[in-house]
Every structure is written in C-alpha cells, then in structure tokens.
Amino acid sequence: MYEGMLAESVTIRGHEGDEIAAYYARPLGPGPFPGVVVIHHMPGWDEWTREVARKFAQHGYAAISPHLYSRLGAGSPDDVAARARAQGGVADDQVVGDVAGAMAFLRAQPYANGKVGAIGFCSGGRHAYLAACRLPALDAAVDCWGGQVVVDDPAQLSEKRPVAPLDLTAALGCPLLGIFGNEDQNPTPEQVDRTEGALKRHGKTYEFHRYDGAGHGFFAVDRPAYRPEQTTDAWGKVFDFYGRYLGKG
C-alpha cells in the first residue's frame, strides 16, 4: 500500500484576519481526512510540535499547528518564544482566534471530512480546553496536562488571561479527552479532580486518563520526564478518541 505525506509551512488567517504562519502535515491521497489543530506549548512552535503534526498525518489526519507567536517578528522559534515570554505570553482571545482560523483552513480543503479536533500540550492543553469552551464548531478536544485550567490564585489572572477555563465549562461544546500524570504539580491531581467534578456537574462528555509514575510533559522523549509505557498507552487513547469523534484517518 502506498503511503505518503506532505509537511510544509503555510500562511493562514488567524485572529482578526491576521496572516500567521502554520505548520501543516497531511496524508497524500484523496481523503476524506479528519483535521486536527495542534496547539504548541509555551516554549514555542518547536521541533516537537512539528513531530506531533506529522504523527497525526501518519495516522491519516490533516494536522495544522498555528504559530501562536507569529506576530512577534522573524527569527528562530526559540528566539520568538523568548519574546513572547518577555511580554507575558499571548492573549487568550488571540489564541482562540488563531485556532478558529486553523479550523477554517482545515475545513476548506477539498479532502477534508469536515470534522476538526484540537490537541494541546501544557499551556496548549489549557488553550485546547479554552477552545473547546469557546468554539462551538470544534468536534473533539484533547487537553494534555494543561496547567492553570483551575486558577487558585486570582493574581494569576490578567488582562491576557482574564478567566479560568474551568469557569467556562458550562459552555464546553464537544467531547473532551484529558491526559494527566499523577505526579504533576501543574495541574495537581487535586486540580484535575476539580476539573473532572465540573465536567460531571455540567453533564459533559469526557474521559480522563491519569497515569501513575508520570509527571508533567511525560510524552517528551528528550527529557527525563519521558515515560515510554504511559506515553504509548496515552497516544493510543488519543487515536481511539479521535477515531470515534472525528472519524478514522
């Protein structure tokens, strides 16, 4: 059987119609392919984020990762991420707008099946939760250890991040998959309990998978936090979830 994919940088319309960069990986062939928006973590639009996009393409999904720091000028992704950090990160509204733009890009492709999910890691996991609450057109969302979905200290809220995503749970409009390590400190297991409590209270469709022996960011193969067994199982959960709610790639 022939297999192939195309992975490239593209320009899309993001929040308020801004032109932003994105990394786009898709299987070759007529489709139909479901789509996935890959939301990068705070260190930026890095190599690992691109690897994730290609992993989805390998599994039959058209995957796009919008460069959330695109507006901060040219340079290597790590230098641009440093600029973003120096400015206190990017605003939630802008991220949601960029995810919406990436969803529109995916749905406009002739080989799209019309279903689009989102997945995010770390700060991107928080963004995935936020997008699931604010973008009704999203069909499925995956939050991988998103910190600060629960905000205990109001001082953590700011003009750029004015609302704790947890407080938007009533509006969550699609099935949610959560992947967490039980040794994580952000979010802590107790915070994950509270998120799960809110999802139950509001009658949302969700499934959480919480791994013993794993901490924060345990998918990262180049860090000590990497946990191969838990990672393999969790990726299986992600593809099973997307298979049910987006269709098989």
């Binding site: 973590h41 705070m42 260190p43 930026g44 890095d46 790590d78 991420a81 440093a82 950090r85 120096a86 770390c122 901490g215 924060h216 960011g217 990262a220 180049d222 860090r223 000590p224 936090a225």
Partner: peptide, 15 residues
Amino acid sequence: TATIYFDHPYHAPLD
C-alpha cells in the same frame, strides 16, 4: 535587559 524564568527549556535535556 535580562529575563529570567524557570520553565521548560528549548534545548537542554531537562524537564
């Protein structure tokens, strides 16, 4: 200016 933070690295093989 120097900005200082304790978070995920971009390159160092550390959590």
